[in-house]
Design a protein around this nucleic acid. Sequence first.
DNA 1: GAGGTGACTGCGA
DNA 2: CTCGCAGCCACCT
Length: 120
Amino acid sequence: MSMLDSNPPLSFFDAVYHVVKLIPHGKVTSYGAIAGFLGSKGSVRMVGWAMNASHHSTAQIPAHRVVNRNGMLTGKFHFGDPQLMAQLLSSEGAVIENDRIVNFKEMFWDPLKEIALQSD
DNA sequence: GAGGTGACTGCGA
DNA sequence: CTCGCAGCCACCT
């Protein structure tokens, strides 16, 4: 079968998209948190790569809610307009200052913890 | 089939 | 404080 015909149960990208779509409004998370939730803490790069491909996905991915561990808007240049990411986050209650979420700690949403609590 | 790439992270100097 | 390096793995050429 060709690689285009591959039909895995759930690709790594899809898993990332699933987690990102679970991020509540007004909350944000980090690449490392997502990678840790997926069980591959070392795959943080792949998470970012998945977000890059999120544009290719038809589903709406709130990629603006994913930032690095410092709460910095590292991927803001991938939204077409560099200000869009900060604008979206700002509209959700985030305080952006110098391309960084000042209240990042307050808005941080850890899927590994939050989802685990919801699961049971 | 093999090599290059990356929206990250942690540690060392 | 800043800067550099290694690790990790799926996707693309």
